[in-house]
Design a protein around this nucleic acid. Structure first.
Lengths: 262, 262
DNA sequence: GTATGACGAGAATGATATTCTCGCTTCGAT
DNA sequence: ATCGAAGCGAGAATATCATTCTCGTCATAC
């Protein structure tokens, strides 16, 4: 990165030289990546152990049996480490979500499941798991909003697809699927994150169900399937555009099913 | 607080003694409150000046012309100071919002305006304003979720009223107004807070309008008034339950208007 | 075989929050 | 007016981290 020659792009820099350097470089790069990975793993362990992202750079260094020196040679700072972990987790999560969704068929059902999964992932666990979506994500949101947005891309892509599919199936309406997807994600993630009611209020915690209903029908109540198992179906029923599920599915579903893996 | 006698509630502790002590106490308490206020004011000024909550306790102390000693005698720590400021700001905001809403009539319009205002308050401003809703609020969400929830109460109460009114007017549907209100608030606040799209994507920033549409109709599209000025009206039209605005208003509106100030 | 760059160990720095020590005032009761 | 306790100011002392820097060592490329 900092090895860029001072001169601008003058001579195309003969390919052979490139390759020679590259060969020399490759090994080093590989070692570097291994080290980075060790830091990453160590951090991950610490997070799992302490259940929080409040670990110290020192701890990471010790656990990875490396040195502070090395750490700062590979990372711009703690925030970069966290960012790396964050991106990785979200990307991984998107992939896993796609897998689980492969067994679900209806566009709206798929979206609902996705919301459930996301909500679940974002719920703080005392025990273990990754608070990657939770506290830590929020900290980053303050300090490095852009990069957080980048990290969200994989999931956002997934949700956007889901929304688009639902729209194509005539089971949802929105002029800008991407924005809507973003709103759904945010609602699920932050709600899961949010604290229960403070005092002795009954409406305590807002669950994934509540989130789903809200996302589905907003406040005009299109999606008021308070019930249980396959609520999605019923939910959409009262709505005009969403009723002909069977019909629309015929025309739009194929595309939807395909895009899921794309 | 730490002056509680060791013995349990044995003798009802003669009232006169109580009063005597109380009288002695009152003055001190008053002085204490003044000092606290000075800290609060100083902090507020710093926030306004620097446009961030990254001020130092030292700075607060200096600005308030008091001492660290004193600061920690009155506050459990910096976070308590922030919390105090936060609660105050939110409470104040709820009040102000109520005022502005006093000129708006339709239940849904009122809710929309509230969402707009909240979104606006929560939008990060480089210049000045209160980062109290933004970065700082998020930090607290991580470290003191319960207290944040408490701080949200005033606004939550307001939004709950608005939602309930809308429901009573037949312009909204929800089994648990409080939860719905909470969801609306979160959506508005966090979305305003969220970063713009990372790459060169067009759908860039999600605006208050988008938030409102989403809250209104969810993804089933009950509220698709992409338009402008008094969009709310049109938005509700396509929905079955929401259409008879004129009709329902007759029966439910009076109650709604009343509660606004309650 | 030697120069170079990466590394480990750990000290040094710098920024902050929080605590502690020492006297000096002030307030309130007698 | 006087005394004792509590409150307070000034600022040193701690504690915690992140981040940087110094000094050798060692592996590797040439």
């Amino acid at each position: 990165m900092s090895v860029v020659p001072a001169e601008p792009v003058e001579s195309p820099e003969p390919a052979w030289r490139q390759r020679a350097v590259e060969r020399s470089t490759r090994a080093a790069k590989l070692r570097a990546e291994q080290r980075v990975q060790r830091f990453l793993d160590a951090a991950q362990e610490l997070i799992a152990d302490k259940g929080t992202t409040d670990f110290t750079v020192q701890e990471v260094v010790e656990r990875s049996r490396q040195s502070l020196r090395s750490f700062y040679q590979h990372f711009d700072g703690k925030h970069e480490l966290l960012l790396a972990l964050f991106e990785d987790a979200l990307s991984r999560s998107a992939t896993e979500m796609r897998e689980r969704l492969s067994t679900v068929t209806g566009p709206l059902d798929r979206l609902k499941v996705a919301v459930d999964l996301l909500y679940d992932s974002s719920t703080p666990r005392e025990g273990q798991q990754s608070p990657l979506f939770t506290d830590f994500a929020i900290q980053l949101l303050v300090s490095h909003p852009d990069q957080v947005a980048t990290a969200h891309l994989p999931l956002l892509a997934l949700f956007t697809e889901l929304v688009e599919d639902a729209v194509k199936a005539g089971q949802a309406v929105t002029p800008r699927p991407r924005r809507t997807a973003s709103l759904i994600m945010q609602t699920a993630m932050f709600t899961a994150q949010a604290p229960a009611a403070p005092v002795g209020a009954q409406p305590s915690r807002i669950g994934a169900e509540d989130v789903w209903e809200f996302c589905l029908g907003g406040i005009t109540g299109a999606g008021q399937a308070t019930g249980g198992e396959s609520g999605t179906q019923k939910a959409a029923a009262p709505k005009k555009a969403a009723t002909k599920r069977t019909t629309t599915k015929k025309s739009a579903a194929p595309k939807g099913a395909t895009r899921t893996k794309a």
